[in-house]
């Protein structure tokens, strides 16, 4: 028989850095889950993404067990890495703080595809480019589909 689901938790945790402090400790602990077991598993699974924020969806079952899925890092995190900047623009609409190429947008779109509501890589690229603009990151060159 399938286990009965008690609820979900949506967290974003830096890869390899889960520890029992808030929110992990209180959120899992209040439901009677073994906090340290989650941390050990999460850290081992995300050891190649050290320091990068990783979204994680935890399914909590009524028998106090859990499963979790680690998703792709948020597009803004990948964009900041690609543009080699530490933060978005102070005035995203006016001042641009960095730029990325369409090739980089494609790379990010391909990473993000499994988690985006996009069937084509071009649609994913448009979403990622939109996020870049709202952070004050310009996309240099012509969009591949406008050629």
């Amino acid at each position: 028989m399938a286990k009965e689901i008690r609820g979900y938790l949506k967290l974003q945790v830096k890869g390899g850095a889960a520890n029992p402090s808030p929110p992990i400790g209180p959120a899992l602990g209040s439901k009677g889950l073994n906090i340290m077991e989650f941390c050990k598993q999460f850290n081992a699974r995300t050891q190649d993404k050290a320091g990068q924020v990783c979204p994680v969806l935890i399914t909590i079952y009524t028998d106090k067990s859990f499963d979790f899925v680690v998703k792709t890092p948020p597009a803004p995190v990948l964009l900041m890495d690609a543009a080699k900047i530490k933060s978005g623009s102070k005035e995203p609409n006016r001042n641009k703080v960095g730029s990325v190429t369409w090739d980089q947008i494609r790379e990010i779109a391909e990473i993000k595809m499994p988690d985006l509501n996009a069937f084509k890589v071009e649609s994913a690229m448009k979403l990622v480019a939109g996020t870049a603009r709202s952070m004050g990151i310009t996309v240099s060159g012509k969009a591949p589909w406008s050629e």
Binding site: S21, P23, P74, G88
Partner: peptide
């Protein structure tokens, strides 16, 4: 949420939780 997460993660916020009320960010 994603943009704010990316930005705040540069300021020492290590973990975030999405709740019905809003985005919760945690820092020592």
């Amino acid at each position: 949420n994603d943009i704010l997460t990316a930005e705040l993660s540069q300021y020492g916020y290590d973990t975030f939780m999405e709740t019905d009320e809003g985005l919760c960010a945690y820092i020592t």
